[in-house]
Design a protein around this nucleic acid. Structure first.
Length: 460
RNA sequence: GGCCCGUUCGUCUAGUGGACUAGGACGCCGGCCUUUCAAGCCGGAGAUCACGGGUUCGAAUCCCGUACGGGCUACCA
């Protein structure tokens, strides 16, 4: 590649539901490649399915991608030299190209009904031969029908292309039947709109999920028939699989929903890091990568060819690593949306004991909930109640900071003659209503003194 | 059914003919620390490299076949 044209890549998500994890993954790889090559990253919205696509889903895609910091250079909301970037707004273009194909004899109108096609398909199956459209509307068009779709007349032969992760690919197009490029509702199919846009937008590298590998020959034949320039190369990335090994489905697998990660307080940079390692590895033992380091290390040669299962445990670990490495200020800022009931100063003071105890931000709520929710007073036996009163006495004259509280409590433990565990657990219960909490002296210090002591008194 | 892609510890993976008694990470188990829970530190178990044939002095690595998984084969994308 000596004198090469500027790199242009794209993602083309379809707004037919919540933003998908796979979209984030594909976007990441696209951005990595684009930034590395000094190229352009385009966001195109693939909304040609009039039945299923909805504008609010489009907004969800923007939000999730922005949250991850995967920003695009051109897109429906940003404009650009190839606007519009929403396929529903480009139908004239597809119609124009389809008309040209028909005129040149590379495509034809098909008047078959879904029922008729289904019958053909069933017949082929009964005869145990691979199904391909019969071409009856090409060979013998009906003259009494007006509703039609446009079908591409597949030229056959061999289609080859370069895949940056799988090498040279070769497909026998004689096995491919004539397929629909314009639906009877006047909208293009994905198989048509995608290569037309890629060509018109001068996309140089098509980086997408492996599910599209088999689609590539369909699209290349179209590009050729239209006389457009083919992309320089493709890269078909391994699919993200669910824990059970099945393809991640929106219905069955909550982790397919990008918004979920934000809601639960995963850090976007950690998710990105995890995603990068699902299907790719640097060839070194490094696991934690900043975006810039990813940029430096990434290459398609090191992309895995088999699908990779999504593993919550490893993500949790990685997110914990990122949380532990955040500065106090940064962590406080990120915690704020999750702790709307807690003032900034208290959040700041909670950070030292909190940070090693979370692998996602939302867990801070479990630890700090007692600050704004009064727990039910525990019922204590006489002996325990006695010790709780001793704790109150020890605490009353103590300055309300973790250190003094700790030493006051230590002293009380000593005079009580019981173990720390036995002494502290009832206090924890009375104070927080939970079995698990921050270390007891922090738990006390974060709550106003009078409130803390009254919870103990109430219990004893 | 046809075509395509794939298959190394439970999971993500290293490995491109001899350095492999197959390495790392997550998880798991044990120990230390410890007021709970984490974090941290130390140690451990865990993969006859899907299976069967070849090629080779030698194969996880090359070839063929089989099995299994996934994708495409839609007027979904």
């Amino acid at each position: 590649m000596a004198v090469s044209e500027p790199v242009r890549v794209r993602i083309a998500p379809s707004p037919t539901g919540f933003a998908h994890l796979g979209t984030a993954s594909t976007a990441l790889y696209n951005i990595l490649f684009a930034r590395k090559q000094g190229g352009t990253f385009v966001l195109r919205i693939d909304d040609t399915d009039m039945e299923r696509n909805r504008p609010e889903y489009e907004a969800l895609i923007y939000e999730s991608l922005r949250w991850l910091g995967l920003d695009w250079d051109e897109g429906p909301d940003k404009g650009g030299p190839d606007a519009p970037y929403r396929q529903s707004e480009r139908v004239d273009l597809y119609r124009e190209d389809a008309a040209r194909l028909i005129k040149e004899g590379s495509a034809y109108r098909c008047y078959c009904t879904p029922e008729e096609l289904e019958a053909e398909r069933r017949q082929a199956q009964a005869d145990k031969r691979p199904y391909r459209y019969s071409r009856r509307c090409l060979l013998n068009p009906p003259d009494d029908r007006s509703v039609f779709a446009v079908r591409f007349k597949v030229p056959g032969g061999e289609v080859t292309f370069t895949d940056m992760v799988r090498g040279e690919m070769r497909f026998d197009a004689d096995l491919i039947g004539d397929f629909i490029i314009m639906k009877s509702d006047g909208f293009p199919t994905y198989q048509f709109a995608s290569p037309v846009d890629d060509a018109r937008m001068e996309i140089t590298h098509v980086i997408r999920g492996e599910e599209h590998l088999s689609n590539t020959p369909y699209q290349l034949m179209l590009v050729d028939a239209l006389g457009y320039k083919r992309p320089v190369a493709y890269a078909h990335m391994p699919l993200i699989l669910a824990k059970d090994g099945a393809k991640l489905s929106k219905r069955k697998h909550p982790e397919a929903n990008l918004a979920l990660f934000r809601e639960q307080g995963y850090l976007p940079e950690a998710l990105l890091n995890y995603l990068a390692l699902l299907g790719w590895n640097p060839g070194t033992e490094q696991e934690i990568f900043s975006f810039d380091q990813l940029l430096e290390a990434f290459s398609f040669e090191r992309v895995q060819r088999a699908g990779a299962r999504f593993d919550w445990e490893k993500l949790n670990w990685m997110d914990g690593e990122y949380i532990r490495n955040l500065s106090d200020d940064e962590l406080a800022t990120r915690l704020e949306p999750f702790l709307q009931n807690v003032d900034g100063e208290t959040i700041r003071r909670a950070i030292p004991p909190l940070r090693t105890r979370m692998f996602k931000l939302s867990q801070s709520v479990d630890y700090l909930e007692y600050l704004w929710t009064d727990p039910p007073p525990p019922s204590l036996d006489a002996e325990t109640a006695q010790r709780v009163r001793a704790a109150v006495d020890a605490l009353r004259p103590t300055p309300w900071e973790p250190e003094p509280i700790e030493s006051a409590l230590e002293k009380a433990v000593e005079t009580s003659g019981v173990s720390k565990g036995k002494f502290y657990n009832p206090l924890r219960d009375a104070l927080t209503g939970k079995k698990v909490s921050l270390p007891i002296h922090y738990a006390f210090a974060l709550l106003p003194k009078d409130k803390a002591l009254s919870r103990l008194e109430r219990a004893a």
